[in-house]
Amino acid sequence: MAKKELSRQKKFDTRIDFTPMVDMNMLLITFFMLCTTMIKSQTLSVALPTNEKVEQQDQEQAKQSEALTIIVDGGLKKATVEGKEIMMSDLDKSKFYYYDGQADLAAPNMKESNMKGTGDGTLRYIFRERNKAAIDLIDKEKERWRKGEISEDEYNEKRAKIQDDSNLKRPVVMIKPTKQASYADVVAVLDEMQINNISRWRIETLSAADSTLLKGLGVDLSTRK
């Protein structure tokens, strides 16, 4: 009996309870997940002409048959939120009007289309059709890159070269936002141009001829609030 008592040694549990440790870690993970950003914003590069007179020549060039004018008209409207008057935009209602070459008052050549949607009248279709020569060449290079015949750097270099090839028929896009156009509308057009490899574009203001043509389509800018 006594012998048994002696041999009883207290057995220590060597395992540590990790539950509080896990609790703390979870808390820290939650903190980091909520307070940090992982997605970096993307950027679109923009190069505007200088304000000097150098662009005069450029402008005249753009008046040739390659010009494509896009009049961006958004769904911006005034709304009152918490007592403050702000502009609200409805991208689904955004529209654009376009014509090739110069505005023709005698035979109105302006067409209307929706910013969103698919099919014939979309921006993508219009740009793709106008820039077909360059896109076809770029698609060929892309195919070669996919097959591993050229590297990505080579592809990008070739793409840039084709975009700037003055021998090809490439459009010069004139973007003219109305007062109802939102920033998102304009960026959407810039984005479509990037997709369709159009490198020549500029942002301009509406001309009198544009307003007259718009009126012909039932859009009177002067009566808008």
């Binding site: 961006v72 958004g74 911006l76 502009m87 609200m88 935009s89 991208l91 936002p177 007062k179 109802q180 156009a181 939102s182 920033y183 998102a184 509308d185 304009v186 960026v187 942002i203």
Partner: peptide, 9 residues
């Protein structure tokens, strides 16, 4: 995105 383009201009 909803800024009127005028203001960005």
């Amino acid at each position: 995105a909803g800024t009127p383009y005028e203001r960005v201009q």
